[in-house]
Design a protein around this nucleic acid. Structure first.
Lengths: 248, 248
DNA sequence: CAACGACTTTGACCTAGGTCAAAAACGATT
DNA sequence: AATCGTTTTTGACCTAGGTCAAAGTCGTTG
């Protein structure tokens, strides 16, 4: 079970934690760096920030100061339409890098909101560019992370553009499952940090549809859901749902 | 009107054209570089490639060799689902940079197909990384281009996730219009290079819906369409379509 | 522990867009 | 100019998912 950030108020040893000693080292920005490079990156990532549940890490329109690597917690990013409609563009967890949308115009193009108390490492962007000119491995890994975001986005387009409700939700659950697994948590049992409405927004569906499809999955023995808690009971069947082409 | 690549077979002077003399200089990778940097980039971009209508620039799964800047022509990129479903992830024209999805895994994650005869400049990726370590302005602009792709993708998510058919198509036409304008072509009159089916795939709709909505726009006096030729006759009304929130 | 608000579930009904089918229009080729 | 294949248009009908409404469940706070 993913436990939330340690509730102890301020722990000096933890505040001093650096990339080189971080358990997310191999998932996060410094993945694959040698120890010399890692020491440099320790200096790059100099500040932590706590974002309380419901609070914003940054707002659309705000100036780019830094990129943010999530240390613990859970966030969503939302694109806004002028008329107030909002589209969840992604859910982010430990090791994920946020804020890359802002590099283009030096202003954030989406909101980042904490879905539970979250701790992030601040990565001053100007300094990251400078350092990545000196450290080819850092440079390359940063490029890989931006590219990975593009690939992820393509996956979401595929989801939104050509899958039906059941497939979308199956893909969503499998994606969460796999990301939890990659972080050492259970791949079969986890808590959803977001509401049905937020899942719906992400998947281009209404919250009632999410609720109904989850119920149907449960009836069919694919999962068991109780509120935010999900247990995948038939992984193969869930995978089969998105594999086959029911249309055409 | 955008004229296709010169049909003369091989023109040596054109083959020798370099970034510093390219009319797309300010849209493309070298945007904003000083003349010293530009001279370096001239050496970086050493090869051209012609892709005939219907041919692939690269395939999903293929190894990343280079990024590609479009000099002339028109392309689409498609994400593939294992079951054969395909989702058009984007349409690309002169000055656009393609292939950034491949940096993440060193393999392309989508297909790139020419919708008309297209000429691209090959940008060897390893060399681009090397050069951008030496030229901060190139480095920064490259980052901006990757970020711009992420922002574009967020826009597509908004489109697919929370807009209805008419809004999607209006947004699509306005986007094309604006991109043609940025390249010195008419913003109000242009040829669609893609089929109704490809538009539909991009917008998460069926080709019949595209056809119907285009006809409706024409009846309402927003545009006039004849096959691939589109003329925007009421820009304001088209804009108004995506501005207001008809639902909720 | 009562009460409130936020979230979820479920049912009944409706509609935007999908599906199927047929005809028309085009463009490339002979 | 005739033919073929591709693309587009339009109509008739259908269904997945949206909408509206009501009841149930939870966590939080006084």
């Amino acid at each position: 079970m993913a436990s939330p950030a340690n509730p102890k108020p301020v722990d000096v040893t933890r505040l001093k934690t650096v990339c080189s000693a971080c358990s997310l080292r191999e998932l996060c920005l410094p993945a694959g760096l040698d120890s010399a490079a890692l020491a440099e990156v320790d200096r790059l990532v100099n500040r932590r920030r706590h974002v309380k549940r419901g609070d914003y890490l940054y707002h659309a329109g705000g100036a780019l100061q830094a990129l943010y690597a999530i240390r613990s917690g859970f966030m969503k990013s939302c694109v806004l339409h002028e008329d107030g409609r909002e589209q969840v563009a992604g859910f982010h967890m430990m090791g994920d890098l946020m804020g890359m949308d802002a590099i283009s115009t030096a202003r954030h193009m989406c909101d980042a909101v904490a879905l539970e108390d979250t701790e992030v490492c601040e990565i001053p962007f100007a300094y990251l560019e400078q350092l990545s000119r000196e450290l080819p491995s850092l440079q390359h890994h940063f490029h890989r992370m931006m590219s990975r975001e593009i690939v992820r986005d393509y996956g979401v387009m595929l989801l939104l553009g050509s899958m039906k409700a059941e497939e979308r939700l199956a893909a969503f659950l499998l994606n969460l499952s796999q990301r939890f697994a990659a972080r050492g948590y259970s791949s079969s049992e986890f808590n959803l940090r977001m509401t049905r409405e937020e899942i719906g927004s992400y998947l281009g569906l209404k919250l009632e549809t999410i609720s109904r499809v989850l119920s149907r999955f449960q009836e069919d023995g694919l999962i068991s859901v109780r509120h935010k808690h999900v247990k995948i009971t038939d992984l193969a069947a869930l995978r089969a749902l998105i594999g086959r082409a029911p249309c055409q």
